[in-house]
Simulated assay, not measured.
Amino acid sequence: MSEDFYCDEVLNGKTKVNTVLETENVLAYHHTRPFYPVHIVAIPKKHISSLLTLEASDNELLLELIGVIKQVAAQVTEQYGSCRISTNLGNYQDSKHLHWHIAYGDPLR
């Protein structure tokens, strides 16, 4: 896997995704290799390597991202009754691009 799958593959169109919600600065789509029965990823279209590297200048983007996560989580919760939202840091973060998982169900693997 590339260091930044989201910039290298998703945002440049090399890997096609099933979009759930998109704004000018944020993309939410069904995970390409889901770990849960419902597994959606939300990413900023701007490269930000992780939650820990956010800067004050990213505040508006972060609010937009959280708004998209909230909308998607509301859709999943409406349909399935619950969901989980998570992000990974450090060695847990396979792709070094800030991304959030919105998921429902028990792990598939």
Score class of each variant (00 low, 15 high):
34 P>H: 12
34 P>Y: 03
34 P>I: 12
34 P>N: 02
34 P>E: 00
34 P>C: 05
35 F>N: 14
35 F>R: 15
35 F>M: 15
36 Y>I: 13
36 Y>Q: 13
36 Y>D: 09
36 Y>E: 11
37 P>Y: 07
38 V>T: 15
38 V>M: 12
38 V>H: 09
39 H>Y: 08
39 H>S: 11
39 H>P: 08
40 I>M: 05
41 V>K: 09
42 A>K: 05
42 A>E: 03
42 A>Y: 03
42 A>S: 15
43 I>N: 04
44 P>I: 07
44 P>F: 06
44 P>L: 07
45 K>H: 06
45 K>I: 05
46 K>V: 09
46 K>L: 05
46 K>A: 04
47 H>R: 09
47 H>C: 05
48 I>N: 03
48 I>C: 04
49 S>C: 04
49 S>P: 01
50 S>P: 05
50 S>F: 00
52 L>S: 08
52 L>N: 11
53 T>M: 06
54 L>G: 11
55 E>L: 08
56 A>L: 11
57 S>L: 00
60 E>T: 12
62 L>I: 14
62 L>Q: 06
62 L>C: 05
64 E>A: 09
64 E>S: 06
64 E>G: 03
65 L>W: 00
65 L>C: 00
65 L>E: 02
66 I>T: 06
66 I>A: 00
66 I>V: 08
67 G>I: 01
68 V>F: 01
68 V>G: 05
69 I>V: 13
69 I>L: 00
70 K>A: 04
70 K>C: 08
70 K>T: 11
71 Q>H: 07
71 Q>L: 08
71 Q>R: 12
72 V>P: 05
72 V>A: 05
72 V>N: 06
72 V>C: 09
73 A>D: 04
73 A>M: 04
74 A>D: 14
74 A>T: 14
75 Q>T: 07
75 Q>R: 13
76 V>Y: 00
76 V>A: 00
78 E>I: 06
78 E>V: 07
79 Q>P: 10
79 Q>K: 15
80 Y>C: 08
80 Y>K: 15
82 S>L: 02
82 S>T: 11
83 C>K: 08
84 R>E: 14
84 R>H: 12
85 I>Y: 04
85 I>Q: 08
85 I>E: 11
86 S>D: 05
88 N>P: 06
89 L>T: 14
89 L>C: 10
90 G>Q: 00
90 G>I: 08
91 N>Q: 09
93 Q>L: 13
93 Q>K: 08
94 D>I: 11
94 D>A: 13
95 S>P: 05
95 S>W: 01
96 K>E: 02
96 K>Q: 14
96 K>V: 03
96 K>C: 00
97 H>D: 04
